[in-house]
Design a protein around this nucleic acid. Structure first.
Length: 219
DNA sequence: AACTCGGGGCA
DNA sequence: TGCCCAGAGTT
């Protein structure tokens, strides 16, 4: 397991690699962000961004999603996967916003997570990006990077990974770190064929060391 | 913990 | 073709 100064080193490398990392889902207000993040589950941001311009032109407020027939909304988002459930969730979530929150998106993680189609990850993203609340959303990239480097244990659950990161990363860097680790995981520390040879963190990376040794043997 | 929903992108 | 993707809900 990495100690605090080693993790500090990782965070500084992440910053030097991706200084401006931020949420890539297009949005102009919290409600649009919430809808975009719900749509982005198991889909790429690029695909979601192709759909949202037309979608947000047609649907501006929760009422618009509540009043439209389910089939019509499903058709409007069908290019994105899992559209049947996502359409239902967005309608239900919009009803909840009107009933409980005066049509506004609530700012806390707990309130967000109680909405239909919103899990811990989505709640963390919306809270941090839209409301500047400190949060670390652990997705597959963050989980993989944390485990490979040795920031957390291999067998840790997603929730344990999040807790560990919250304990070891300064709170004012939580949100930024989340996005930087996603970039690092997506473009560098990839699930398949990570480019360990050129990695600036190789010297302290548990998995990287293992992979390099393996490569020496086979070559 | 495993399973399902799911079209798009890429090799 | 086959495999993966910035997940959540149900069993």
């Amino acid at each position: 397991m990495l100690n605090k100064s080693q993790i500090r080193y990782c965070l500084d490398i992440f910053e030097s690699m991706y200084p401006d990392a931020e949420c890539e889902l297009n949005h102009t207000n919290p409600f649009e962000l919430l809808v975009a993040v719900v749509l982005s589950a198991q889909a790429t941001d690029a695909l979601v961004n192709k759909v949202t311009p037309d979608l947000f032109a047609k649907y501006k407020r929760p009422e618009d999603y509540v009043n439209v027939p389910l089939e019509e909304l499903q058709n409007d988002i069908k290019r994105i996967g899992l559209f049947r459930n996502k359409a239902k969730n967005i309608k239900k979530l919009s009803e909840t916003l009107l009933e409980k929150y005066d049509g506004e998106v609530p700012p806390t993680k707990e309130q967000l997570e109680s909405l239909a189609g919103v899990g811990r990850k989505t709640a963390n993203v919306v809270a941090s990006v839209a409301f500047d609340e400190p949060a670390i959303a652990v997705d597959t990239h963050v989980e993989r990077v944390s485990k490979r480097l040795g920031i957390c244990r291999w067998k840790d659950s997603v929730l344990e990974v999040e807790k560990t990161l919250m304990r070891k990363v300064p709170v004012d860097e939580w949100s930024v770190t989340h996005h930087r680790m996603i970039f690092f995981g997506r473009y560098h520390c990839k699930a398949q064929r990570p480019s360990c040879e050129e990695c600036p963190l190789l010297s302290l990376c548990r998995e990287g060391q293992k992979r390099m040794k393996k490569k020496e043997k086979t070559s």
